[in-house]
């Protein structure tokens, strides 16, 4: 049952050391504010799951929060590589990170299987792909009806999923619009779900009957954080801050520059800064 609370409380009561955590968003609606709160609370030993770990996972890995990363594409979209992740994988800084790498199709299927309460996902994939040789969680099953060999991966069942969405209504139902990505499956696959939203409205009157709505009883906690996806975007609210993604490349290239940036922009701040960060991007949406 969704309870409205501060972001700090939503994170502290749902994310614990050693958890398997998904902060999902497929380019759109990435829960940056929630991740920054997790960084401030100094959680450790996390298994971080996400199809497209971009700069927010780069930040969490660089801050030493992750024991393991489960992913299918680790890049800075439109810019290039994730330099903190690379430093962890190639040089073990600040400590080594175990990686479990999949394809998008595999992870999308694995989240869906998690939401469906299944132990594994079955799909047609990984044919001839080297990932199947380096990731022991990529296996195969034979179709009992046709004999076709199909790929199988374990379902994803996070301890906690964090997402950002446009709206909640007063009851705590959550509305997601635009590129909806994997968020619904990531929430339903998780034991606990925390949602940050742009705003709270009275009800969802006038919303299309087939809209992507997560009923209030599928969510543990809701925190209102306007701008909480920045530098990602919120369809209908503000545009993507492409400049920040570009600037991240230089910040993340250097350990000292990274550490200083994190102190100034994350550790010494709170969730209230996000509204200001998107002010100029609202007109450009």
């Amino acid at each position: 049952m969704a309870t409205f609370m501060s972001l700090a409380e939503a994170v502290s009561s749902n994310l614990f050391d050693g958890d398997t955590a998904a902060f999902e968003g497929f380019t759109h609606l990435i829960p940056h504010a929630a991740a920054h709160e997790a960084i401030r609370q100094g959680r450790r030993d996390l298994t971080l799951v996400r199809m497209t770990p971009d700069i927010v996972y780069d930040q969490m890995i660089g801050m030493g929060m992750a024991r393991k990363l489960v992913f299918s594409y680790a890049g800075n979209p439109g810019v290039g590589l994730l330099r903190r992740l690379r430093d962890a994988v190639e040089n073990g800084w600040p400590h080594p990170v175990e990686i479990e790498e999949h394809s998008h199709a595999a992870m999308a299927n694995a989240y869906e299987a998690g939401a469906a309460g299944l132990p594994c996902a079955v799909f047609r994939g990984y044919k001839g792909a080297s990932l199947a040789r380096v990731n022991p969680n990529i296996r195969s099953v034979t179709c009992p009806f046709t004999g076709e060999e199909l790929a199988a991966v374990p379902s994803i069942r996070p301890d906690v999923t964090f997402i950002h969405a446009q709206k909640a209504n007063r009851r705590g139902d959550v509305l997601i619009e635009g590129i909806i990505g994997i968020q619904k499956e990531a929430v339903l696959a998780a034991r606990r779900a925390v949602v940050t939203v742009e705003e709270v409205v009275e009800d969802f009157a006038g919303v299309h009957p087939n809209a992507c709505v997560l009923p209030h009883w599928t969510v543990k906690a809701i925190a209102v954080v306007p701008g909480g996806a920045h530098p990602s975007y919120a369809h209908g609210y503000y545009a993507r801050d492409n400049r920040s993604y570009l600037e991240w490349d230089a910040i993340a290239a250097d350990r000292e520059a990274f550490t200083a940036w994190m102190k100034q922009n994350v550790l010494d701040k709170d969730a209230d800064v996000f509204a200001g960060r998107v002010a100029a991007l609202r007109a450009a949406r």
């Binding site: 497209t52 299918s72 680790a74 590589l81 994988v89 790498e101 394809s103 998008h104 792909a129």
Partner: peptide, 16 residues
């Protein structure tokens, strides 16, 4: 790895 690239994303199944 000498260089860790972003990875496959959708490509393995797009290719098949």
């Amino acid at each position: 790895p000498k260089v860790r690239l972003p990875g496959g994303g959708g490509a393995p199944e797009i290719a098949s």
